[in-house]
Nucleic acid binder design. Structure first.
Lengths: 105, 105
DNA sequence: CATAGCTACTTTGCAATGTCAAGTAGTGAT
DNA sequence: ATCACTACTTGACATTGCAAAGTAGCTATG
C-alpha cells in the first residue's frame, strides 16, 4: 500500500469484518480485500494480522487440506470477536466523523 | 485516546489541516482538535507530530512571546505542505471508502 | 511570599502494527 | 524439469501514538 500509516488500526478490523461474513482462509481474505480496493496488500501483512486475531480469541481456527496447494487454515469469528468487531465499528465511525470534519470532506 | 491505533496516520494529516486554516501554535492546535472531538490527546502526542511536520518542510515556524506563558512557536503551512495535505486527503478518502464498504457502514 | 494552576514546549522510553523480503510447501501445466 | 499458482511463515525494520516526567513563564489565591 502507498499509505501504510493509514492502514494502521483499520486493517485488523477489516480482516475481522471479512471473516465475520463467513468461514474463510487467509489467501481468500487477501483476494477479498483486494477486490474491495486494498490492492498491493502483501501476505506478510495479512497473515500476522490473522495470527493476532486468533491469539486474542476473536477468531477460531480449523485446518483442512486444499485441493490446490498446501493446507488451508479456515477461520470463523468467535463470540468475543463479534463484540470486538462491533466496538471497533463504533470507534471507527466516531474517529472517521471527526477526521472528516477536520479535513473538510 | 481509547483507540490509539486508529489515530496512526490520520493525526498528522489532521494537525496539518488545522494549521492550514491559519497561523497557530501547538497548544492552540491541541484545543482545536479537542473541540473537534479528539479529546484526551496528550501534549506528548501532539508536539512530536508538529516537529515532524516541520522537519519534512510542510510547515514553517516563527517564535513569539506569549502574553500568558513561555514562548510560543507559531506555524503556517508551506507550499509543500499544501501539496501533501491534498494528497493526504485523497488517500484518506479512498481508504475510508474501502473501509466503510468492508465494515458495512 | 508561597503555593497552586494555567499556559507552552521538550524529552525519553515503550508498544503496536504494517511492510519488505525471503523462505517453505503442495499441486498442476508446459 | 521448470514455471506458476496456491498457501502459510518468519525476521528485521520503520513509523508512529502514548504515558510520564521535566522545564519554564505568568497569574491569582491565601
Amino acid at each position: 500500500m502507498e499509505d501504510t500509516q493509514l492502514m494502521k488500526g483499520i486493517l485488523e478490523g477489516c480482516v475481522l469484518a471479512v471473516i465475520s461474513k463467513g468461514e474463510t482462509y487467509g489467501y481468500e481474505i487477501l483476494q477479498e480485500l483486494s477486490e474491495y480496493g486494498f490492492q498491493d496488500l502483501g501476505e506478510g501483512t495479512m497473515y500476522p494480522v490473522i495470527t493476532r486475531l486468533e491469539k486474542k480469541g476473536y477468531i477460531l481456527c480449523r485446518k483442512e487440506k486444499s485441493p490446490l496447494g498446501p493446507i488451508r487454515k479456515y477461520y470463523v469469528i468467535s463470540e468475543n470477536g463479534i463484540v470486538y468487531l462491533n466496538a471497533f465499528k463504533e470507534s471507527y465511525k466516531r474517529i472517521a466523523e471527526v477526521a472528516s470534519a477536520i479535513l473538510d470532506l
